[in-house]
Design a protein around this nucleic acid. Structure first.
Length: 574
DNA sequence: GTAGGGTTAG
């Protein structure tokens, strides 16, 4: 073939490679590539980028290595494509090697290369120093450079740093586009800043990005994460266009706030042209777990199996959690055992399930199995494990894992874990130790920690520390009726009726009414929830029948009601 | 003929 025809055939092949990769027909693309007689840098690069855009990062990397072996001169297109593969593999050593090659070949001044380098360093290294170094070296930063920096900080969990970059971007009068807005809104959401979120929302409207779907979706998510679910819902209705992510975001927002709006919205989704996906189902199943509607969860499970979505790990994890929270731990276990692959969340969910059912020994056994399988435990695993020990009274085991996470896994316990350990010690009656841990922990104890301690003081009748804890909680939340109730009950159980009466008087003067604890029961696929003495609907006799059966079971296993708690209930109802 | 940053699931 004459040289011009070879060139023409090569261009045709390159175009075909691209279209095969877009259709995810990688084998056909590769076969074609292998048949090109003189493969130039463009052919190599399209094969590399074809692989990365389909998520085949390792294959893209191997391709790049082969290209080097054949001494094909790389260009800026090649470098930015292969950097994306390094980012996908999460291997910084590969990325920095490519960085070196970029310098050697004189393409490190190319904007695409610089932006890809930043992105790779930010994703693959622990900190942001290398990404920042590249960023500061860029003399004229474009919108992608800025957005990449904001996205990197946000994905690393530092929303404040992300907003600082955004502020600098505005000061330097760089061009803001829809990509910048969606990620900056995400940064506001990650730090729960309603104030910044609102300001950015105003700017979105002013600059005409209000109809961009990712921007709108980020706004819905931001309002939800800032605790403004009704505002999110209002905006959801105002949106000119809603895609599946919009619906999923709103459903998930309702789910996290504990509202059954998630289930209502899910049923409305069926009258739209959109079809629910794994994200939708995961949130809906989580809602079934929170609302303890087992029959609903089971129905969705049947749909999932029919649609062949039961291989999705996140969804299976949600089912493990749902069945456990609805009291059906055997179903949780069955799903866990049948999963072809599990992630750390699967292990956490099943361990939490056993823990909340009082089977700490099984949670501990699963922890051992998990480590044996090579899954690295994280903070939440230890949290589940310690709380399982706490609910089963396995204090020494709980303390062992508290030290274990620190010494063997180098995981610093967060405030919540300290709270969990305070609870562990307190429940077991080691109230003084719990108090000592509370005042020595490296965090300012919050009302949850003091609350756990107060609960322990009530259960183990330690009125001295109980008073201290209650006063701390009242400093943090002066109108908390439940704290007064707890404290007065501590006095009551000590027989200190004068102080009891004093507390009740104080409470009436300063507090809003204590929100009465609600009970719920599921009878024949219907969930009934009620407070003491409340009149229920037409099927009340079914509920009472079921309650009688439950009480009978409890008596048989030796349950003795704690009548001291009745003081609280009378007060709540009165 | 080859390259870019964004939104939903513990």
């Amino acid at each position: 073939m004459p040289p011009t025809q070879i060139k023409g055939a090569s261009i045709l092949a390159t175009n075909l490679i691209k279209s095969y990769c877009l259709k995810e027909q990688f084998k056909d693309a590769r076969r074609l590539f292998d048949e090109i007689p003189e493969r130039d840098v463009v052919a190599w690069t399209s094969m590399i980028s074809g692989y990365t855009s389909g998520g085949r990062n390792t294959q893209a990397w191997t391709m790049f290595c082969d290209m080097k072996k054949e001494d094909v001169q790389l260009n800026a297109f090649t470098v930015s494509s292969v950097l994306k593969a390094c980012k996908g593999m999460g291997v910084v050593s590969c990325g920095s090697m490519v960085h070196g090659l970029a310098v050697k070949n004189g393409v490190d001044g190319n904007m695409y290369v610089q932006n890809a380098l930043m992105d790779m360093y930010a994703t693959c290294s622990a900190g942001m120093s290398e990404a920042c170094m590249v960023f500061e070296m860029i003399s004229v930063k474009n919108d992608v450079s800025w957005t990449t920096m904001i996205a990197s900080y946000t994905h690393k969990g530092d929303g404040y740093a992300a907003l600082k970059v955004f502020k600098r971007m505005v000061q330097e009068e760089a061009e803001l586009n829809s990509y910048t807005y969606s990620i900056t809104i995400r940064a506001c959401a990650s730090i729960g800043s309603y104030t910044y979120g609102q300001q950015i929302h105003a700017a979105v409207g002013k600059h005409g990005f209000g109809s961009d779907p990712p921007v709108g979706n980020s706004l819905v998510d931001m309002y939800c994460r800032c605790g403004k679910v009704s505002e999110a819902y209002r905006y959801f209705h105002e949106m000119p266009e809603r895609d599946l992510i919009t619906w999923n975001t709103m459903i998930s927002g309702f789910e996290r706030s504990g509202s059954d709006g998630s289930l209502q919205l899910f049923s409305q989704l069926s009258s739209e042209v959109l079809h629910p996906n794994c994200f939708t189902f995961t949130s809906v199943v989580a809602s079934c777990a929170n609302l303890a509607v087992l029959h609903c969860g089971r129905q969705i499970h049947a749909v999932i199996v029919r649609r062949g979505l039961d291989g999705n790990v996140a969804l299976a994890n949600a089912f493990i959690d749902m069945y456990a929270k609805c009291g059906s731990i055997a179903d949780s276990r069955r799903i866990f055992d049948e999963m072809p692959s599990r992630d750390v969340i699967s292990w956490t969910s099943i361990m939490n399930g056993y823990g909340s059912h009082g089977y700490a020994d099984e949670a501990i056994r699963l922890f051992g199995e998990m480590v044996h399988c090579g899954v690295k435990p994280d903070q939440l695993v230890f949290m589940g494990l310690i709380s399982a020990c706490s609910h089963s009274g396995l204090v020494d085991d709980g303390l062992k894992y508290f030290h274990f996470m620190w010494n063997n896994y180098n995981i610093k316990p967060n405030q919540e874990i300290y709270g969990c350990v305070v609870d562990l010690l307190g429940r077991a009656g080691r109230v003084t130790e719990a108090y000592e841990l509370t005042v020595t922990m490296p965090f300012e104890p919050d009302k949850l920690v003091w609350g756990a301690l107060l609960g322990a003081c009530k259960a183990h009748r330690n009125s001295y520390i109980g008073r201290l804890a209650a006063n701390k909680i009242l400093d943090l939340r002066p109108n908390g009726a439940e704290t007064y109730v707890m404290l007065s009950n501590i006095y009551a159980s000590d027989g200190r009726w004068g102080e009891f009466a004093e507390m009740r008087k104080l409470m009436r003067g300063t507090c809003s009414k204590k929100v009465a604890g609600r009970s719920w029961i599921e009878v024949r696929n219907q969930v009934y929830n009620f407070v003491v003495g409340e009149k229920l609907g037409p099927n009340i006799e079914l509920v009472y029948e079921e309650l009688e059966t439950l009480i009978q079971h409890m008596k048989e296993v030796g349950y003795v009601p704690d009548l001291e708690c009745c003081i609280e209930d009378f007060e709540a109802v009165a």
